[in-house]
């Protein structure tokens, strides 16, 4: 992994994270989530994990949320609630992006009211997906607080939004594309940077 001391520069197109890198990053994020949960109600017997809900944003945020939950359970022995929230119907850029098939919106039976909801997505870019997800959450319940976990933050925000948990910061140029592949959806774990086709 790149040291934080290195100056920000555009990565050379190619593989940014390998399969092993992805596993290591997910593990680190799981640990950070465990630490954060412990601050919700200090001294709670389950370390606050029963108040935590990981809500994945389809497509790749959903398996990512499940992985994080699985790693948390592996490290702590405590199961964490997971859900998914499809944000397509909340997007404000449908006219430009076009319609797509919807994916499930599934919340845990206990709901999200008064809990710490961590939205999980693969890449943080303009911030518009997160804004749409916040709007969707507003219609789904009233969490105590909402935080954001992303595997890759590639910059170029268009909204005042930042992530609370970042797997890897990747300075990119706008013309580049960051592609996250996960075994569940793509058959392989990797993160690639490509130059967008003209």
């Amino acid at each position: 992994m790149a040291s934080s001391a290195e100056p920000a520069r555009e990565p050379v197109p190619g593989a940014l994270l390998s399969s092993a890198d992805v596993a290591r990053v997910v593990d680190r994020m799981a640990h950070q989530l465990i630490e954060r949960a412990a601050t919700i109600e200090p001294g709670a017997p389950d370390g606050g994990l029963s108040d935590l809900v990981l809500v994945g944003i389809p497509t790749r945020g959903a398996p990512l949320a499940r992985r994080l939950a699985a790693r948390i359970e592996a490290f702590t022995g405590t199961a964490v609630d997971v859900g998914t929230a499809d944000i397509t119907l909340y997007r404000d850029d449908l006219r430009r992006r076009g319609v797509r098939a919807l994916e499930p919106t599934v919340l845990p039976d206990a709901g999200i009211d008064d809990r710490l909801v961590v939205l999980v997505d693969d890449v943080l870019f303009s911030g518009r997906s997160v804004r749409a997800a916040l709007d969707a959450l507003r219609d789904l319940g009233r969490p105590r607080s909402v935080q954001l976990a992303v595997l890759v933050d590639r910059g170029h925000r268009e909204l005042p939004i930042r992530a609370d948990f970042v797997g890897k910061n990747v300075p990119t140029s706008r013309s580049q594309q960051v592609r996250v592949h996960l075994t569940e959806t793509d058959g392989v774990d990797e993160v690639l940077v490509t130059e967008a086709a003209e």
């Binding site: 499809d86 119907l89 404000d92 219609d139």
Partner: peptide, 15 residues
């Protein structure tokens, strides 16, 4: 999916 997303919700409205 719409049915499922709106099931049991108080606010049955999407933007």
């Amino acid at each position: 999916q719409i049915d499922q997303a709106l099931a049991g919700r108080e606010v049955k409205k999407l933007p």
